[in-house]
Design a protein around this nucleic acid. Sequence first.
DNA 1: TGATTCACG
DNA 2: GACGTACGTGAATCAG
Length: 935
Amino acid sequence: MTQQFGKGCHLHLIDGSAFIFRAYHALPPLTRKSDGLPIGAVSGFCNMLHRYVEGNTGPDAPTHVAVIFDKGSHTFRNDLYDLYKANREAMPEDLRPQIPLTRRATEAFNIACKELEGYEADDIIATLSCQARDAGGRVTIISSDKDLMQLVGGGVEMLDAMKNTRIDVEGVEAKFGVGPDRVVDVQALAGDSVDNVPGAPGIGIKTAALLINEYGSLEDLLDRAEEIKQPKRRQTLIENREQIELSKKLVQLDCETPLDFTLDDLEVKDPDTETLLGFLNEMEFRTLTKRIADQMGVEPPAPPETETLGGGDAPEQVEMPEIDPDSYETVTTADQLQTWIDRIYERGYVAIDSETTGLDEMQVDLVGICIATDPGQACYVPLTHKAAEGDGLFATEDLAEGQMPLNEALDLLKPVLEDDAILKIGQNMKYDAKILKRYGISVAPIDDTMLMSYALNAGLHTHGMDTLSDRYLGHQPIPIKELLGSGKSMITFDKVPVDKATRYAAEDADITLRLWQTLKPQLHVKKVTTVYETLERPLSPVLAQMEMHGIKVDRDTLSRMSNAFAQKMAGLEAEIHELAGETFNVGSPKQLGEILFDKMGLEGGKKGKTGAYATGADVLEDLATEHDLPARVLDWRQLSKLKSTYTDSLQEHIHPGTGRVHTSYVQTGANTGRLASTDPNLQNIPVRSEEGRRIREAFIAEEGKLLLSLDYSQIELRILAHIADIPQLKEAFAEGQDIHAATASEMFGVPLDEMTPEVRRQAKAINFGVIYGISGFGLARNLRIPRGEAQGFIDRYFERFPGIKDYMNSTTEFGKANGYVATLFGRRIHTPDIAAKGPRSGFARRAAINAPIQGTAADIIRRAMIRMPEAIEGLPAKMLLQVHDELIFEVDESAVEDVTAAARKVMESAAAPAVKIDVPLVVDAGHGKNWAEAH
DNA sequence: TGATTCACG
DNA sequence: GACGTACGTGAATCAG
């Protein structure tokens, strides 16, 4: 039944490369059980093809179809412009062997599979589209690549298979501001950083569309460029004419690609059962094989006998229905809610997400709660949405209709959320737990997908919901911007209409549940279950407690300091302007650099990549020996920093209700396992300078209490001594010696009792340098000594402590072989750049050397923090802050000794019993009415 | 928004 | 042989 392609025919063209990359990034790196062949992308590709074929029913089904691939990296565009696509990342190593398999997969589905040496897939798609259109048929291009949008129109449309949205002429106009026939003109002007198409500098899509619409076409625009009013644009277009014309050639798709087949060869054919199942079975896709066999009504072939290799690294992909925001339920009555609660009890777990009026958990109000029990089964319980005015445009202060009373809903939910037998799953549950705590609900027990992702993949990507959804579910959630807007006209969530809110909010719970089903089994496969269970999950509630307590900060002290700083700065500024002979913005590094190096003609001006002079503190310090101006600027900068970052903005963070400052710790913020502190950052309160340290006087204890600080002494060097197994360092620590003096003594042969501060200082710099992955250059710069001398120190160090060099080499090798390095407690820190070439690998190598040391220290204090609540239970003390190797408590005056003893014991024994460290961990303690005194 | 600078461990 | 180099963070500010 051969059908001549023509009117009534419908051609589907699938962008194969886009499918492959989507599949690759959407799935964790799966391997074939029998031989470890990477097949994650092939698996995703087959699933996508299968889903595609399944969806092809009804009157709109294609009559002809082909998957089009790129072939060869050199195309005619490289002949036009040798930098075309030059900044493309190389194909990932584990994807390369999968490419031929995707061709075989396409053939197994009995879909035409086409490519042409020296041509991009886009050109073949263009040629086929033109042929089909000219023959009177319809075309759907399955891709979201904007480069293909120039083809839309005259029966040609695009389809974004992921979002399931069609892109027609209007869609193209929305994206480019011009019709499809002018898309190349806009692209030629705007350029494309991904493909390295140069375009016209400084002109983006918006401006380009404006110009094209005004002048009709690119050619007319360039010919009449003199008429452009804005001088900068006019100049750009005139100067870059050639480059723009070249860009147009690069983005213009070729409709005359010489093809060795015709449209008729692309006719839709049913797959051959045996071929398809044979291929899927060979790939060992058990679930998909079985599913397709069932659909075809045949027995699935017997899976090949496999001996599990390396513990079996190929979990089956969890099958889930499509995410559909329109399928979610809005819960408005107690009966409805009860039905969901019953379902939760049936399951034993539930994914939840709370919607609030903002981001500050200590201040915002609860607006609604969403619940998901299964993929696709999610609801939203709106609680305090505001009613719209009559015309529906503005929200009022009255509650919207159709919502359960807040108390009634919370009374129903509280028993579930607090039930020991029901697992509550969230993405960043610390946030939700803090909110609900303010409404009297203590959520427990919890699982957290953000923390799972962190335990699994620290160093590979960030762990926000959008990232995870895109990577692991291949789905882009509804952007919150769509509901709230942005900038000045942004609204709060309670002003969002309930129906819109349901789509967004319930989707988040749905996604969270799906992520949980995807990530949880991975913990075991990647051997990080212990990390998650002992270092991540139990820390979350501890941090929540600390954040809710906050630390008392005295506004008057800060305010007085701000005024004093302002006065001093004004005086310095006047002096600086006097010395410069003109007024300028002292806070502008650019203007300062020009004053110093151009106007005053000082030596040593170095320009960075942006063409501005460097004016960092090290540069100014060198200049300060010769001139007064840079010295004054250094003083001014110090004051400016203290004022703006600390004395001024800390005041704004004092909670009006508690009079305390409540930071947020980001548990997944630092790849090494450290915490990060934000809003405000309380981990970088000044201490090194006398003037800055006084800011700590504003951090105070309540009346009758004291602040108590305990910090690990030299914890990273102790860990280095243990991990690299350095006998001399271990011994020095065991005997309680001054470690830097001991190092100096060992290196330079100076007896300890004859040690000079200068020699000790140098040894200290080397000790720190080692932790950071030392280089002669770096040490020279730090100590301000000649590079050769610094290298000599390092050589001597490695000679005296050969274990250090071994540690560095073996860690680097491990990182290269495995893609990650690990702490003593099994935390994995991924180092994908370590195999790169160029300067990136240097950074990655040093980071890999540092990560196990910094990360092990981070693990130890985490363990201490997790045990702390129980250890100080019953004592009148609260843990308030963590600063990497220091914990700060607020304690009744009478109990300082008891709490110090209890907390110290926990901290010093925190590595045990999981890890036996060969050196003692030592904790120093201090206390006082304020943080300055306690430290 | 990105670069620069600087506060901390 | 040249090149560019300490590790990990967050916040404020300037400039385009």
